[in-house]
């Protein structure tokens, strides 16, 4: 092992930070490219991609692409749809998956090990392999609405939300986290008279901030970026999310500048959400070793 002296310690730090900065800049390139391109006319955008100008605010810059993008697609509606679907799914996922994991970890019922194994096994099933049967199912499911029972879930918010409110990965994250919580806290609460729902609400969930942040971010990204499923189940513009809205820009003449402006706009909620939960997310990843 190399000896760390005061002299080479400073040098090590410089090298370390230089390498980290270079990696960070490389990761920022696509984002910078997208934002810079969103201000450039399509012709200049394509010309600039051959040089470093692609990453610099140079040339004929304007907000024209944004104005055009807003004119071409109802961006506000799409962002609202995505935020509503994503937000509702995240909240329901946290609630349902944490309760499921709570049951697996704390409640002693016969066969829970087997059921958990089956749930975890679903992690290796690609979504694409079940998407057709799921579509057929969703098209025939009943729903009790304001006008009585309706048949078929297509073209709705619920078809984008309900199939995703429970998933193996989130349950697994909660199970692992709950297993690491000190068992004596739960036992102390039991002896103090708390019921299982009270233990869930008053003890376990208040201590689960890091895993909730991790699960929320992972779910948020998956839902906000989902494309295939909403493309299949939503034909009405009224319920269309942002990713499917991208289609509006892939027509005869592909307007790259407008696409970049659209992408820049729809990236804002993701960045805001990530920055909000960043600290808890990193803490949780560092402690669980789960990759985002």
């Amino acid at each position: 092992m190399a000896i760390v002296t005061p002299e080479n310690r400073g040098l090590r730090l410089v090298v370390r930070y230089t390498v980290l900065t270079i990696i960070a800049v490389i990761f920022c390139f696509p984002l910078v490219f997208m934002i810079m391109s969103s201000f450039k006319p399509s012709q200049q955008l394509l010309t600039d991609t051959g040089s470093l100008r692609a990453f610099l605010p140079v040339g004929d810059l304007s907000f024209d692409n944004y104005i055009e993008a807003f004119a071409r697609a109802p961006i506000g509606l799409f962002v609202f749809n995505s935020m509503f679907v994503t937000g509702t799914t995240v909240i329901l996922t946290l609630l349902i998956c944490s309760m499921t994991a709570f049951s697996f970890v704390y409640l002693k019922w016969r066969g829970r090990g087997l059921v958990l194994s089956i749930i975890l096994a679903t992690l290796i099933v690609p979504f694409e392999t079940i998407v057709i049967p799921l579509l057929l199912l969703a098209s025939k499911l009943p729903w009790l609405g304001l006008h009585g029972i309706e048949w078929g879930w297509l073209n709705s918010y619920r078809v984008q939300i309900i199939p995703f409110v429970a998933d193996g990965l989130t349950i697994f994250l909660f199970v692992q986290y709950f297993k690491d919580l000190p068992g004596e806290l739960i036992e102390a609460a039991r002896v103090e008279g708390a019921s299982w729902p009270q233990i869930y609400r008053r003890i376990v969930m208040p201590l689960s901030g890091p895993v909730m942040a991790t699960a929320a971010i992972l779910k948020f990204l998956a839902m906000y970026n989902s494309y295939l499923w909403p493309l299949m189940v939503v034909q009405k513009e009224q319920y269309r999310p942002v990713m499917v809205g991208l289609q509006y820009f892939f027509q005869l003449n592909i307007a790259w500048g407008e696409i970049m402006a659209y992408l820049s706009l729809i990236t804002v909620p993701v960045l805001a959400f990530y920055l909000l939960l960043q600290r808890a997310f990193i803490a949780s990843i560092a402690s669980t070793g789960v990759k985002g």
Binding site: E184, L185, A188, A189, R190, G193, S195
Partner: peptide, 20 residues
Amino acid sequence: VQPKDRGVAMVFQSYAIFPH
């Protein structure tokens, strides 16, 4: 009988105080 209905209170080795 459930722990809560036994009329007992317990002090644990690790204290088991709720940290939040």
